[in-house]
Structures are given as structure tokens and as C-alpha cells.
Amino acid sequence: MVSVSMTVNGRTVSGQCEDRTLLVQFIRENLGLTGTHVGCDTSQCGACVVHVDGKAVKSCTMLAAQADGSEVLTIEGLASGGELHPVQAAFRANHGLQCGFCTPGMIMSAVDMINRHGGKLDEKTVRAELEGNICRCTGYHNIVKAILDAASTMGDGTRVAAQ
């Protein structure tokens, strides 16, 4: 067993878990934050994407122990008060989801993408950057539209940090 302590969505949390516990298990089972999904469990689908120290990672491919001392941002940490994050709002406005299972990972990837590329984001880049996120419903079209919409709303330098 290891003791881990990290900041999740701005809140300091700590807990005991097995050394082999994945970050996604810790987030879902220890912290009860079930917005982060497990889709494939083979590091391919991206439903489990969270930000660790400001970078999008697959939380099914990282141990909770590795994240000890880190700042973690999950889908639950994006909205501010009752107001959706611009990327969440853009996914809703553009019908960027159908069943919604991949959506938390898509949105976390989109926020990371916009953080890195800002207003320079174009369709080709969005499609290439979605390499690590699989959606089986939408055909990606509205997801791409939503991300481009959010990127233009947020513009350059509108980095949304962990709350």
C-alpha cells in the first residue's frame, strides 16, 4: 500500500491505495469522481483523459502513486460555479456528442489542445490531435466543430487553469 496525496480540481486529497492502483481507479473509486471514464483499458480510447500538472494524459496508463504530489484536473473541475467551461458549452451547442461516453475525455483533450495551440487551431490540427480519443457515435464531425468553436471563443492565451 502507498499513501498518495495530490491536488484534484483545486482540492488537496490524500488516500491509501495499492501500488498497482491506476490513477483512473483512484479518481473514480477513492475520490468518487466518476466523470472520468474507462473505455478500452488498453490506452487507446482516451475516455480517461485528465490533466496532470497541466498536461493531458491517459489516467488508465498512469499509477496513482506516480501522480503523488501532482495537480490533477478532471472533467468535474472545468465548470466554474454553475457555468459550463467554454469547451463544454461548445460541445453542447454543436451537438458534439451522442451517447456521451467519450465526452469527458474528448473535452479534456480539447482543453489541452486549445491551451497549447490557442486561436491558431485549425481543423487539420484538431483532427490530428484527436488521434488518442475514440468516439463510436458521432463520426467526429461535430466534435471537431465544437473544438474549433471553443477555440475561437477562447482565443489566444485564454488558458483555463485548474480551479
Partner: peptide, 9 residues
């Protein structure tokens, strides 16, 4: 290599 998330790690 891989995808953006893999490249971050």
C-alpha cells in the same frame, strides 16, 4: 509517436 497524451508521458 502515438497520440498527444502518450507523447506527454
Amino acid at each position: 509517436i502515438g497520440d498527444p497524451h502518450v507523447r506527454h508521458m
